[in-house]
Structure formats: structure tokens, C-alpha cells
């Protein structure tokens, strides 16, 4: 496995693919190494991670209305 020195541009180009876990292990390790050394890219990556986490939390949750809960309970009672 050869280590590659990535430029900031290369890292930012692949940042979301990296955060999505869609880069192979070697590519991911290259980015990890760059982020350990480059404050600008690290700061950017942290920002995108936080925003992504907020999106995950907000996008996958909403209080289910009582009407839906009652409907589901009704469905289950019929089984």
C-alpha cells in the first residue's frame, strides 16, 4: 500500500465521499493523514461532520401523531 500526499484541493474534493465512508481504506488513510496535519481541512471536515450529524438527527425523527399510533395498534390487534 503506497501512501499518497494529498493536496488540500484533493482532500476537499473527496471530503463528502470520505465522510460517507465510500472511499477505500488506503484512500481514507491518506485523507486521515492530511487531516492530522492541515488545520484548515480539519476544521472544514469537523464542520461538515457536525452539520451531517444534525441533519441525521433532525431528518430521522418526528413525534408520531397519536392518530398514527392508534392506527398501528389497531393493525397489530387485527393480527
Amino acid at each position: 500500500m503506497t501512501e499518497r500526499e494529498l493536496s488540500c484541493e484533493e482532500v476537499l474534493e473527496q471530503l463528502f465521499t470520505y465522510l460517507d465512508g465510500e472511499i477505500d481504506a488506503a484512500g481514507s488513510a491518506d485523507i486521515d493523514r492530511h487531516l492530522e496535519r492541515c488545520r484548515d481541512c480539519y476544521t472544514r471536515a469537523e464542520f461538515e461532520k457536525k452539520l451531517r450529524l444534525k441533519t441525521e438527527q433532525a431528518g430521522g425523527f418526528a413525534p408520531a401523531p397519536e392518530r398514527l399510533r392508534a392506527r398501528i395498534r389497531g393493525l397489530l390487534d387485527r393480527y
Binding site: 430521522g60 425523527f61 418526528a62 413525534p63 408520531a64 398514527l68 399510533r69 398501528i72
Partner: peptide, 11 residues
Amino acid sequence: VLRLMDRLYGT
């Protein structure tokens, strides 16, 4: 199902 309801509905 009931435990996951808010997540299912939110999604």
C-alpha cells in the same frame, strides 16, 4: 414498532 415509531414517522 412502537419504540421506533417516531423515527419511522420522521423518516
